[in-house]
Amino acid sequence: MPPFPLQSDWAFVAGNLDLLLAGTGITIGLTAASILLGFLLGFPAGAVEVYSRGPLKRAVESAGVVLRGTPLLVIIILLFFGLSVSSSAFVTATIALGLRSAAYQSQIFRGALQSVDEGQLEAARAIGMGRLQAIRSVVVPQALRRSVPGFQNEFTIVLKDTSIAIVIGLGELLTVGQNLYQGGQSTAALEIFLTVSLIYFVLTFVTNRSLDYVDDHFSIPGGERA
């Protein structure tokens, strides 16, 4: 027994901080890539749900329901072991998180687009804009501003859910923690997992505050009642 087991466990974590930080880097990269993919797919999907009709709209809606109704864990495993979309764990995790995030982001954008007053579109048409142009230059800018709070939430959800990529052995933060724990051989379980949690907490906290700032910065003076 070491004289100060607690101390030495913390020292163990401190000694492996570089590994944990490397894992944090992967977590951040995975979050950014997934959010980006989610945005690239989710924004058009939201627009389709609002402005289009027929089979395209139905297809987008159904895909959304399936992606929102299935655990991320199942999506990741299916993509990695079932469909083997990529041999890279990072790419697979990005696709899984990105697809699922797209399904949620589409709902955020759908809501935001729908919340822009009908009159805005009419006013834009009245000054001679085409429908597409009116949507693009009048409705979308307002909708994007309104989606910041929902987007903020989605961002932190993706950030936290990157931890699920542990299932395909991606070396993100939680995986690093799990490796340090060595399946129970380390006595530093509490120290390791608390440190890992703390890092996640700092990440979500910083993300939230930054997006709060974005929200304030881009909000329209005098609110949205034009």
Binding site: T156, K160, L174, G184, A189, F193, L194, S197, Y200, T204
Partner: peptide, 17 residues
């Protein structure tokens, strides 16, 4: 605290630590 950390990490803390 609970909303700022992954559920999976919380499970690990409770189960392993």
């Amino acid at each position: 605290l609970f909303r700022g950390t992954p559920l999976l990490a919380q499970l690990f803390v409770l189960y392993f630590a």
